[in-house]
Design a protein around this nucleic acid. Structure first.
Lengths: 123, 123, 123, 123
DNA sequence: GTGGTCTAGACCACA
DNA sequence: GTGGTCTAGACCACG
């Protein structure tokens, strides 16, 4: 639940990613209610406006829905989680492969690189 | 030599990355003179100040040296390229592994994911 | 808060030095918020970009931290001030001693020279 | 005889300083002929234009004289060395005292600082 | 309102 | 010609 204030990725997207990851890891489920903007702001120690933006962004992507007066909920649409997992996995892999190719590494070296770092800490 | 003007990564860092990649791929060598700030600005179609910043950043990282009135050169220090390659590779791999772990995937699934995407285009 | 526009030392570094000096003289404390880039630009009568550069440089040295949208703050890390004072003092002394030695003066003559000039104005 | 290519002090002045120091240390005497611009450029590994400028500057200060077709010589005027030594010493001391005062140090601390660093290497 | 990036254009010292 | 600094002014994402 830590934000990197110096990353080029905006904080509001970092927080969205964290929620996506929790969904994919089954720590969160379709239909679950997310903390209120205020509550979430306290938990993550960022400005409520930032959380507002996180929620808007997730709504735009169809991952959550806001119900007036009730709060923000994970969309119940079938397959939402699998879709998300599929999408995130693809993005991460594609980005990885592209960067490694730019470094001139072969597929074998990529696999090797992962073996070497797979034991690394969570940062 | 194309920049993505809409990426969240600043142009001046994108250009630095491109130079790093060319170094690692042996298209550029220690001791080589980089194009002058103005020349590079024309090639990359950005403002000279942006290139200035690229070069400053690379100097800060010890990859290049500037000699007043003469130009900017790749550092001649032995091992600079391997060091750089090592560092860039590590960064990319660690980031990948971390993200995949956050998606709850095992090492096997990571390797599989790469196999699936390794044939993808260069961007 | 005056800058010397004709010094060979860049303005952005002169301003950084002034802030360092204020920190060391306890006129500024860890955790303090510095004036915003624009505000500082007005105070020092230079362009905001110049202040931006001052702040970047200080961040690079670990003296300040910027929090996006909030401002720039003196780093809270313990010992930051003593470290800085120590470093600045060392730099000044070493440079002095080196130059005096190049003039062929003995330690006694150095001490004497200081006695003679210690009453001089602050510039 | 080393130049610092990254100092804010221009190379041509660094070289002038080195000559001044040699004069003051009696390694060089009034009436001595300095190496030709070309020769000096080779010795110091800088561009001949830079040496040209060094010589011009020293001439402007009355330390050297150029005699057409013969070369550049240290001025023979009486007292030139003592004057120079006096001036350089004063400049170095004043600058030192000013900087130390800006750091909020007392005269005692200055003397102490020198004691501590007087044994330090020549850089 | 905050910092960050970028452009355009200028001037300078240096080589 | 080279890099370095500075200004002016703009736009942007973020908080």
């Amino acid at each position: 639940m830590k934000q990197d204030f110096h990353s080029s990725k905006p904080i509001y997207l970092q927080i969205a990613d964290q929620i996506f990851f929790r969904l994919v890891r089954k720590e969160l489920f379709p239909g679950d209610k997310l903390p209120s903007v205020r509550e979430m702001a306290i938990q993550t120690k960022v400005n409520p406006n930032t959380i507002q933006r996180t929620y808007s962004e997730m709504e735009r992507l169809g991952i959550v829905e806001t119900r007036r007066g009730q709060g923000t909920f994970i969309t119940e649409k079938a397959g939402i989680v699998d879709e998300l997992k599929e999408r995130l996995t693809r993005e991460v892999c594609e980005s990885f492969v592209m960067q490694m190719k730019e470094l001139g590494l072969t597929k074998e070296e990529m696999l090797e690189g992962i073996e070497k770092h797979a034991e690394g800490g969570r940062k």
